[in-house]
């Protein structure tokens, strides 16, 4: 039945319809941009150390915001019902919505990375790993946003709900402070944060080094989180899509 083509159609429509919505621009680009600028102004020497964290954070905010929007806007307008009436598997809808959100997260993050490379001389040591980190992170975060937006009704509720976990994640995932410098009691928690592993993958890609003994560790963990999130999204949609 070529369900994947229908998923792509959903993504394409979402991308055209929702790129440029205010919450996306605020949370996707301005927030990390301003943050990075302030870090740079404060201390031009250390911004590179935090750039994997800031890049991962951008990915997190852009992907989750987009996926929250592609669901809640349509639920409120009643158009989400169109997808439920159409001959689509729930997983097709999830795939379509995830792809558009992940694509948005990637696009936003690439703008940031390009700006860093051109303006501040950022260089990648292992570009392949960096790219894998971005891809995994984009899809994983998009799925997380999708799950959150299925639980609420309004766009702002989704944003509030997500900030409830997005901000704490920033603090335990080595975004502002390298993982190694976290207090001992926080470290186990950091392991449980998907963001930690994405940050480490980006760190490997950027510097060729990381706090983890091998890149396989964050890679494996990210994949595991991805499978977990996909499963959770499936279950959440089954329970809540028709409400």
């Amino acid at each position: 039945m070529k369900q994947w083509r229908r998923a792509l159609a959903i993504s394409r429509k979402d991308i055209v319809s929702y790129y440029g919505k205010p919450p996306l621009i605020t949370w996707g680009l301005m927030f990390p941009g301003v943050l990075l600028l302030s870090i740079y102004l404060k201390d031009p020497g250390t911004y590179l150390q935090v750039s994997p964290g800031i890049v991962a954070m951008t990915l997190l905010f852009a992907s989750t915001s987009m996926s929250a929007i592609v669901i809640t806007f349509e639920k409120r307008a009643g158009t989400f019902q169109r997808l439920l009436l159409a001959p689509l598997h729930l997983d097709t809808i999830i795939l379509g919505k995830t792809l558009s959100a992940a694509a948005y997260g990637l696009a936003t993050t690439l703008i940031l990375v390009l700006a860093l490379a051109i303006l501040l001389g950022l260089r990648l040591t292992v570009p392949g790993l960096f790219a894998i980190g971005l891809l995994l992170g984009a899809v994983l975060f998009a799925l997380m946003g999708l799950i959150a937006s299925m639980v609420v009704k309004e766009v702002f509720e989704a944003m509030t709900l997500m900030n409830f976990f997005r901000f704490p994640l920033l603090f335990i995932s080595g975004v502002f402070m390298p993982w190694a410098k976290l207090p001992a009691w926080l470290k186990p928690l950091a392991w449980l944060s998907p963001l930690t592993h994405i940050v480490e993958l980006l760190e490997y890609g950027l510097t060729g080094r990381s706090h983890f003994p091998s890149p396989w560790l964050p890679l494996g963990a990210s994949l595991a989180f991805l499978v977990l999130a996909a499963g959770a999204a499936h279950v959440t949609f089954q329970r809540r899509a028709y409400l």
């Binding site: 429509k13 307008a77 009643g78 158009t79």
Partner: peptide, 12 residues
């Protein structure tokens, strides 16, 4: 299906 509310995509 034509639901009781017309619910196509307003921006399209």
């Amino acid at each position: 299906v034509v639901p009781d509310e017309s619910n196509l995509y307003p921006e399209l």
